[in-house]
Design a protein around this nucleic acid. Structure first.
Lengths: 84, 84
DNA sequence: ATAACTATTTATAAGTC
DNA sequence: TGACTTATAAATAGTTA
């Protein structure tokens, strides 16, 4: 990928957020692609340090599980997930 | 990616499984990478038509949620997830 | 922060064994 | 089923605006 680097946590917050943002869009895209081309159910959730939840679910069954057991419980304990 | 194609379900089972297998390893790798470089918690689950569960969890908290609310309930209802 | 650019590395569809 | 090869497309780290 681009200029060769070691995969590790960047201690610079702004750089880390840029990297996360770029990679998140690719990861979500690939999750959607494998769900379609492989005809599988996929659930992908990322809790970022910037306090946001990124998710992709290919099917309703997984979506239900996510909402009932992950999103709602977290929403009750941590107000940050209510951010837009 | 390679020769240009449209992302859609392949009706040929063997071809679909090859594509899924290749893409799964890349997706798991990228999930691990974003967890490290972005310092985030990541959960990735794929239920394949070949009756297997592929997963990656970066942190224990998500691992617990996955085991308690997704893996165990499914194991009780669908024997196929007990396959190796 | 955010968005484009670009040189380079990765991913991968198709093919072969 | 895999494992390997190859031509090509996609991803991306660093940079610049």
């Amino acid at each position: 990928m681009g200029r060769k680097i070691e995969i590790k946590k960047s201690e610079e917050t702004s750089k880390r957020q840029v990297t996360f943002s770029k990679r998140r869009s690719t990861l979500l895209k690939k999750a959607k692609e494998i769900a379609i081309s492989g005809d599988v159910d996929v659930l992908l959730v990322a809790f970022s340090t910037a306090q946001r939840l990124s998710k992709f679910c290919s099917k309703n069954r997984i979506e239900d599980i996510l909402q009932r057991y992950i999103e709602l419980p977290i929403a009750r304990k941590f107000s940050y997930v209510n951010k837009p």
